[in-house]
Design a protein around this nucleic acid. Structure first.
Length: 111
DNA sequence: TACGTGACAAGAG
DNA sequence: TCTCTTGCCACGT
């Protein structure tokens, strides 16, 4: 990937690689980018991803599967609807069977 | 130019 | 086992 891309752009690249019906976490993305501990930056990147197309920010949740960013989507439960439309069960703003649908870029993308 | 903010994570008590 | 505190870094004002 181009190093000229900003940290945000690299975050978007990883998020785009998350397959439908799967979710990942902010920390996993941060770790994959070599910035473990910068999970907050990933959240900030998601906040700025609204202007970016093809960035499935709804597939990014916190480490316990909680939809912490749902309030940043249009509509109260748009994020939940998007996930459910992909087969992810969301219950009480939290991904059900989180471990089952969890997608770790460090495991899936790292050779 | 400098400071505060932010959709988190991990360690310590 | 649960709760609190600290760290991390780019963007906006």
């Amino acid at each position: 990937m181009n190093q000229s891309d900003s940290f945000f752009q690299r975050v978007y690249e990883v998020v785009r690689l998350v397959p439908a019906g799967r979710v990942t976490s902010y920390g996993a993305i941060a770790r994959y980018l070599g910035s473990a501990g910068s999970a907050r930056m990933v959240g900030w990147a998601m906040n700025a991803s609204h202007g970016q197309s093809d960035v499935p920010a709804h597939r990014v949740v916190n480490r316990v599967g909680l939809l912490s960013g749902k309030h940043h989507f249009q509509g109260t439960n748009l994020m939940q609807q998007l996930l459910e439309s992909e087969g992810v069960v969301v219950e009480d703003n939290q991904v059900r069977d989180f471990k089952e649908v969890y997608w770790d870029p460090n495991l899936e993308l790292n050779p």
